[in-house]
Amino acid sequence: MLSVLLASGVANGLLYGLVALGVVVLAKAANAFNFSQGDVMALGGFVSYAVIVTMGYGSVAALPIVVIVALFVGVLSYLLLRPLMDAQHAVALLTATIGLSFLVKGTIRLIWGRQGDYFAVPPLVSGPPIILFDGAVIIPLQHLVMSGGAVLMLALFALFFRFTRLGLFMRSVADNPRAARIVGIPTELVLCSAMVLSLVVSAVAGFLLAPATLIFPDMGFSLFLKGFAAAIIGGMMSLPGAVIGGVLLGVTEVLVSGYISSTAQELSAFVLIFVALIFFPRGLFGGRSSRSV
């Protein structure tokens, strides 16, 4: 039972982690949160539904299309929100992203709303679970694929930040925006990239989640909250922290549900945040607080 629960918790947690990554990337680069991230995650699921079920192509074809759509939505979001992306308009920006959330949700409803309540995307893989050590460890295939996909995405993310010029720019802006501007780093490009990247990673999370659940237009907000919670647990400004926060959240939910009570599943996420913030007020990887004298 434990291995199955852990497989499920890690798989879901990694997806929360992907959303959390998007939250952190935008928070670091632009000091902003985008409420439409969850809806773009839903959009990722719906686009994969359209490609796999409606058009009859496979999952391999769906992934690049999901990424292209997310790129497009990301650039469009940036163009819409750009005038508000400064410290003076923080509240207006937050409100605008809520509006954007409704816009994305409304578009999903407009396209798919009349076709049914919920949509099923076929499993990425089907077959019996993997059984190891004479049945002591059981891992459902779907969870393995979800985890594998999420880990691959995280690896690409790490490589992007470590080795690409744009990734380095983004890190510089995140560390010290003023200094980055002074040394000539194109902050506009960095802001745009952060917006696009946060939405692409969310859409890919939607692509990975869709076969494991049912998708519906309003699914985004609760997923965004989970990702946001993961980012808080991880320390808000830490990329590895976001992923670890997501996994902690996913594993806690499923272990509480499996060993204590399924009624406590939803509650467990909030208890985890509460406990984490009591002992680590800046999150697990948020660093130590400093005081200016």
């Binding site: 459902p140 997923l223 272990l255 399924s262």
Partner: peptide
Amino acid sequence: EELSMEANDATAQVLRVQG
């Protein structure tokens, strides 16, 4: 067992019912 409308995974519930 409880399974909310927001749930995306029922692994824990299935295992508890199975057992």
